[in-house]
Design a protein around this nucleic acid. Sequence first.
DNA 1: GGGACTCTAACGCCGCGTAAGCGTAT
DNA 2: AATACGCTTACGCGGCGTTAGAGTCC
Lengths: 140, 140
Amino acid sequence: MEDESMYQIGQVAEAVGLSLRTIRYWGEVDLVPPSGRSQGGFRLYTDADIDRLRLVKNLKPLNLTIDEMRDLVTVRDRLAEPSTPADQRPDLVERLALFATIANERCQRLREQLEMVDALNATLQDELRSATTAAERSGP
Amino acid sequence: MEDESMYQIGQVAEAVGLSLRTIRYWGEVDLVPPSGRSQGGFRLYTDADIDRLRLVKNLKPLNLTIDEMRDLVTVRDRLAEPSTPADQRPDLVERLALFATIANERCQRLREQLEMVDALNATLQDELRSATTAAERSGP
DNA sequence: GGGACTCTAACGCCGCGTAAGCGTAT
DNA sequence: AATACGCTTACGCGGCGTTAGAGTCC
């Protein structure tokens, strides 16, 4: 009764909004491996796995490498785990802090990009307006 | 007197904030080719070239492919050029409109990502705070 | 002629997309 | 026995980063 409610990859992909390939890849590189396999070799995912997939999906805008993402999630897991010995925590905290600053910088970058795209947007709209009105003038 | 103030790639890279490789690549794929070459084959860029490099750099957050970027800049150039015949304009306008919608969607995506990263940021700060205070409690 | 700069050519990388050919589930 | 779903293996790609070895500028 520990193998109840395991999902196969298609349902997981549907639920989470990721491609099969991505989910398999994240398993390959040990970022989110499936908790089990069926008799015939089908990947089987638990609800916890699905949560983890969602979490990693949410991390994507941070633009981390796979290795960094894996590190981040494991660091968080180990900090949240009460059984983690106290003498390991300083190291974990340091790594977490690193990711926090990365997240901050990324935030900054995103704001800049948003500003840039907003400006471009306005410019394009303008050009579009003036181009079409010019066409109308010489048209009808 | 038409070859005055041409810059070689290093100065351009410095001025614009792009790597040599990127500038060379953008030339290779005919996105921003150098206006000239020196006797010995050094790429030479004009001020107009530099402006174009800046422009393309600003387009980057749109996440277009090279081909799309090239299309966008040439479309804009040709619309701005008065000598472009009127019967070509509708097509150009249509393509410009396409990029305008892309820019809009990209804007939307960026806002979502920013929201996501902001949330992550907050979470990380929280975890960091509680992790360090926990360490202090068991520390001194 | 020496040091800083630049050239081409080539391979490497990451995060998957995309078949191809074959086994599993129901 | 058909149909839908999944498996592994492998190649491809975009946008450069990164040598390596040779040539150019001044």
